[in-house]
Design a protein around this nucleic acid. Structure first.
Ligand SMILES: [Mn+2]
Ligand SMILES: [Mn+2]
Ligand SMILES: [Zn+2]
Ligand SMILES: [Zn+2]
Lengths: 139, 139
DNA sequence: TAAATATATTGTAGTGATTACAAATCGAAA
DNA sequence: TTTCGATTTGTAATCACTACAATATATTTA
């Protein structure tokens, strides 16, 4: 996804593509880490020295509101963001803190008990030890 | 689950069953709402006038640490707690805010992509409109 | 182009949930 | 009853996030 496509995508989602907005969305697309506001700010402030953390908050809230980005509440104290809007699961390693994506067969989640509930968002969060961290511990 | 059973349960999980701890755990078991710290405090402070909010925080952190209670991060700004440790899903209504339980066929979540990851916690959160709130809107 | 208007960004102060910590209280032994 | 460790409390601090007014930037109008 190059900058022209990002611009199109934002416009399509009723978001005026300002320079900061382009850069923040680009960051999310290029780094499929599931960053916090603080991380996004720290990573971009060198390239955009005038960037304010408030702008990062404002921009991400706008993206979520417009449905361009999803809010991930896998952490208990900090919100994370993901440009991948497809239904997929997240695994957070309790040791290294990394958040991994994994595919989800969604048909399986049939919500047996809840008839006539209208689902708008799906969040599937697992926590434990990632492959790499297990190997390190075994040594 | 009566008070004697609760005492046993806490002891089994290496938690000394003080009066406050018993009451807080009892609250979680009897009210299967998925309360925030603030709600638990407000509901119990009449019965236990000396109760401090810090104690509610301390106690819930202890419960989670000992594996007696699970932390639910379905909200983006407040933590919730659940005495039901079985694997089940949570649905939060965006309109009334209520958090419902629903059964989950866990076999379906096979984590295709992530080989050799050790899963310790499962969180399945859905958000949307609950049955009752849909009916109200249709009127 | 220049003035007028709208929109985006910034900085600072405020809020609200959570934690740190030391003092007070409680409770089980000795 | 005294002692000693654990629990509880109250207060201050922290940290993520928001409110808001001032400034800067972009867009429209004349
Ligand atoms: Mn993802
Ligand atoms: Mn539940
Ligand atoms: Zn890891
Ligand atoms: Zn509802």
């Amino acid at each position: 996804m190059d900058i022209k496509e990002i611009e199109k995508f934002l416009k399509f989602n009723q978001i005026k593509p300002s320079h900061h907005r382009l850069k923040i969305y680009e960051y999310l697309v290029k780094n499929k880490n599931h960053p916090t506001v603080d991380l996004i700010y720290k990573e971009l402030v060198d390239e955009i020295p005038t960037l304010s953390k408030t702008t990062v908050y404002n921009t991400l809230n706008l993206f979520v509101e417009k449905g361009a980005v999803q809010l991930i509440t896998i952490d208990e104290s900090e919100n994370r963001y993901d440009a991948d809007m497809s239904i997929h699961g997240h695994f957070k390693c309790k040791h290294c803190g990394k958040v991994y994506d994994f595919p989800v067969k969604f048909s399986a989640m049939d919500m047996g008990g809840l008839q006539n509930f209208q689902v708008e968002e799906n969040h599937i969060y697992l926590k434990g030890l990632c492959n790499e961290c297990q190997i390190k511990k075994e040594v």
